Computed example of a mutant assay.
Amino acid sequence: MRLKRIIIPFIVFSLFSCKSTIVTSKTVSNPNNTPKNVILLISDGTGLSQISSAFYYKESTPNYTRFKNIGLINTSSSREDVTDSAAGATAFACGEKTYNGAVGVAADSTNLGNIVELVASKNIKTGVIATLAITHATPACFYAHTFSRDSQEEIASQLTRSNVDFFAGGGLKFFNDRKDGQNLLINLKNNQFDVYTNALTEFATIESSNKIGFLLSNEGMPKMEEGRGDFLSKATELGIQFLSKDDSGFFLMSEGSQIDWGGHANNASWLISELIDFDNVIGKVLDFAEKDGHTLVVVTSDHETGGFTLAAKKKKREDGSEYSDYSEIGPTFSTGGHSATLIPVFAYGPGSEEFKGVYENNEIFHKIMKVTNWGKAK
């Protein structure tokens, strides 16, 4: 399937491109437009309809309205038109499209350098956060290399040896309740991690630590509807504080993981509550970036899940006939899986203009590396 040339009215501008062409970023000429920090926010399974739900269901103005630089990405993997989270996150983390299920490996199964590994030699601090297991597909692609996303025990083992400086999420059982009997919490400690398994802590408690890990549930974190609270906002703020303490620059990926699961379950209330939580995180991050002035914020998703639509609510007349009530929304789904719809990209801060346009998902990586100059030799 080829994405034919299209013109897409989106927000207040028009964009056009095609699937077979990868758009190359323009050269950044202004040295003052070089970000020191990058925060990549990924809302797993989120398309434009999911984002639109915040405009109808959130009680306050969505933070998505604060962006002026907006683009679209095509999310297809190397072999399939419809991607999964592993191939999508590998494109973001490593800059290359791969097959569905692959974590940090190319289409030929060779290892790809990821952004965490590539910036470690430059003394840039790195962090990953998720509301599912930290070994789940999306966060894993930023530090691990496996042929299959299902190899979560191997992914956990690789995290203990990685260059990640801060992580937070679930997945404790992949570290201390393993088939091989190992206790990887010891391995984490040996790699200079202080690990917490009960709750997030205050920055003052971890300020002097070399590396920090939070493993706060056996698998995924609870749903928002089950009382997770503001974990994602607090973990992201704590990650920013920890990674910026020595002023050397940082990269942080924070994922609203369960928007995707709400889509898979065709559960609108689950999806919408997770999306609103993610929008709150956007607000916290933008507040930091506005004050800091040296931070690039990129907000996007790996793919859309559920074929989610904000349709008019179906109602019945007294005679039993059905009609669509255009004064009320009735969220609907067309699939329990992923879709191939184009995905919005929102960017703020120095270098954010580079993220306008229509391009392939792996260009997110290349655009980040270009505007930061992180891809240049030390």
Results as ranks from 00 to 15, higher is better:
R2S: 13
F10P: 03
I11C: 09
V28L: 14
N30F: 09
N33M: 13
P35I: 12
K36I: 11
I39V: 15
S43N: 03
D44G: 07
D44P: 02
G45I: 09
G45T: 06
T46H: 05
S49T: 04
I51V: 10
S53G: 11
F55K: 06
K58A: 13
S60V: 12
T65N: 11
F67M: 01
S77V: 04
S77R: 06
S77D: 11
S78Q: 10
R79K: 12
R79H: 04
R79L: 10
R79V: 00
T83W: 10
D84V: 10
S85A: 12
S85E: 08
A86V: 14
G88R: 07
T90V: 08
T90Q: 09
A91N: 01
A91R: 01
D108G: 04
I115H: 08
L118P: 00
L118Q: 13
S121N: 13
S121E: 12
K125V: 01
T126K: 01
T126F: 03
T126R: 01
T131G: 11
L132W: 04
A133W: 08
T135F: 09
T135P: 01
T138M: 06
P139V: 08
P139R: 07
P139H: 09
P139A: 11
F142D: 12
F142A: 08
Y143I: 06
A144M: 02
H145M: 07
D165R: 02
F166A: 02
F166V: 08
F167Q: 10
K173F: 07
F174W: 11
F175D: 08
D177N: 13
Q182G: 00
N183K: 01
L185N: 13
I186P: 07
V195A: 14
A199Q: 15
A204W: 07
T205I: 08
E207F: 08
S209T: 03
I212K: 09
G213A: 15
L215S: 00
L215Y: 01
S217L: 07
S217Q: 13
E219W: 02
M224Q: 14
G239A: 06
Q241E: 13
F242R: 11
K245P: 12
G249P: 02
F250T: 05
S254M: 09
Q258T: 02
Q258D: 01
I259R: 08
N266G: 00
L271C: 05
L271M: 15
S273Q: 07
L275Y: 00
I276A: 05
D277K: 05
N280L: 15
V281W: 06
I282D: 02
G283T: 06
K291L: 14
T295D: 06
L296M: 08
V299R: 02
V299M: 04
V299K: 04
T300L: 07
D302E: 13
D302V: 12
D302A: 12
E304D: 09
G307W: 13
T309R: 14
A311D: 15
A311G: 10
K314L: 14
K315W: 00
G320V: 08
Y323A: 09
S324T: 00
S327Y: 04
E328S: 15
I329M: 05
T335C: 05
T335P: 08
G337R: 03
H338M: 10
I343W: 00
I343F: 01
A347E: 07
G349W: 03
E354M: 04
G357S: 10
E360I: 07
E360D: 15
N362D: 15
H366G: 12
M369P: 03
K370R: 06
V371Q: 05
N373E: 04
N373I: 00
